[in-house]
C-alpha cells in the first residue's frame, strides 16, 4: 500500500498536494463546526447552572421572547425542570441535575472528537509539508541537469 514519496512524478506530487490541501480544509471546517457546537452547549450549561438552578425560585418573573424584539412578562412556574433538545426533533423534560450531566457529557464527547480531529489535522499538515519539501528538492536537481 505504501508508496515512497520520492518515486512520484511532479504531476503526481501536485495531485497529492491538492488532495491533502482539500482534506485539510475539510477537516478544519469540521473542527470549527465542532467548536461552535461545543460553545453552544457550554452556554446552555452555564444558563442551567447559574440561571435556573441557583437563583430562580418558582414564581420568579421572566421576560419571554416572542420574537427577537418582542417580549412578554411571565412567571417561572417550575424552576427545577427544563426541556432539553436531544436531537432529531425530540425533547426531554429533565431536572436540572441530569440536565447538567447531559450537557457535561455532550461537551466531553465533543472534546474527544476535537482532539481526534486535531491529531488528524497535525498528521495531514505534516504530510503536506513533506510533499512540499519533496517537490522543491526534486524540481531543483532536474533543472540543473538540463
Amino acid at each position: 500500500m505504501e508508496v515512497s514519496i520520492d518515486s512520484l512524478s511532479p504531476q503526481q506530487l501536485a495531485g497529492l498536494k491538492k488532495q491533502l490541501e482539500e482534506e485539510l480544509e475539510h477537516l478544519s471546517s469540521s473542527f470549527n463546526q465542532l467548536a461552535a457546537v461545543q460553545s453552544k452547549f457550554r452556554e446552555c450549561l452555564r444558563c442551567v447552572e447559574r440561571g435556573v438552578k441557583s437563583s430562580s425560585e418558582e414564581g420568579d418573573s421572566i421576560l419571554v421572547p416572542l420574537t427577537t424584539s418582542l417580549y412578554v412578562r411571565g412567571n417561572i412556574s417550575q424552576s427545577d425542570k427544563v426541556v432539553v433538545d436531544v436531537g432529531t426533533g425530540f425533547y426531554v423534560e429533565k431536572d436540572t441535575k441530569s440536565t447538567v450531566q447531559f450537557y457535561t457529557a455532550k461537551i466531553q464527547e465533543i472534546s474527544g472528537n476535537i482532539q481526534g480531529l486535531e491529531g488528524m489535522v497535525e498528521k495531514k499538515s505534516g504530510s503536506l509539508q513533506l510533499v512540499e519539501e519533496v517537490r522543491k528538492n526534486t524540481s531543483r536537481p532536474l533543472k540543473k541537469q538540463e
Binding site: 426541556v83 426533533g89 425530540f90 425533547y91 426531554v92 423534560e93 429533565k94 431536572d95 441530569s98
Partner: peptide
Amino acid sequence: NGEKIFKL
C-alpha cells in the same frame, strides 16, 4: 423515571 419525552 418522571422524565417526559416531547416531540417537536
